[in-house]
Design a binder for these strands. Structure first.
Ligand SMILES: [Mn+2]
Length: 184
DNA sequence: AGCTTGCCGGGTAAGTTCCGGCGCT
DNA sequence: AGCGCCGGAACTTACCCGGCAAGCT
């Protein structure tokens, strides 16, 4: 099983989510979604990894690319994938605690590709969920990469941010790297 | 005087959950 | 009757973007 692909998809899932949907007559759906304004990143970084995981699971579920009103969406409907991703996500704090860097670098890259500053000038990472940012800071520390925060950046919506100081940008690029077309 | 980084407003690129369908047991 | 894949899309806001200026060297 390709843990690196799972780790990247979990990080990238910050731009989407896994949903256990309940419908009428007891019907249900286990849907995992990644979204992006440009389809390129979804096709290059998300789709192949997702297909790889489906193959490993022996699943016949379809990977669907959908053009929405405000963004593209790549989607899979599979209880197996849903369970794999949600269970794997729960294990991330343990991986950080043990500094499993070969896996963590993929999680961090996926996370940054999703939620990171892509101006090329600064390295920042936003999220409402302070705990995920705290985890990111801890994970970065495993690589010797310093990060400021998290602190409250958008007081209107309660969005927090961390920032990798300029002295550590090079190290982030070398150790973690980028796949998003705006940065890669 | 150039670089760094906390702060903050703009608005769109995200996220989330509906709908109707079909298929399997 | 009860559940799980499929295709679509409406709906709200959480991100990203980017400028400003105080602080440092
Ligand atoms: Mn994003």
């Amino acid at each position: 099983m390709n843990n690196c692909d799972i780790a990247y998809l979990l990080g990238a899932l910050a731009d989407g989510g896994c949903y256990c949907l309940k419908y009428r007559d007891g019907r249900s759906e286990y849907r995992c979604v990644w979204t992006q304004a440009s389809p390129v990143w979804l096709l290059i970084s998300v789709k192949p990894r997702l297909e790889n995981i489906l193959e490993n699971l022996g699943s016949n579920s379809k990977v669907k690319m959908l053009k929405g009103n405000t963004r593209y969406e790549i989607r899979v409907s599979s209880k197996l994938v849903f369970q794999l991703l949600t269970q794997s996500k729960a294990k991330i704090p343990k991986l950080i605690e043990k500094c499993e860097n070969e896996i963590l670098r993929h999680w961090l890259r996926g996370l940054y590709d999703a939620e990171g500053d892509k101006s090329g000038k600064r390295l920042r990472l936003w999220n409402k969920d302070r705990t995920i940012l705290t985890l990111a800071v801890q994970a970065l520390k495993c690589f010797g990469i310093e990060a400021y925060g998290p602190y409250l950046d958008d007081k209107r919506h309660g969005v927090h941010v961390i920032e990798i100081p300029s002295k550590h940008r090079r190290k982030f690029r070398d150790e973690i790297g980028f796949e998003h077309p705006k940065l890669a």
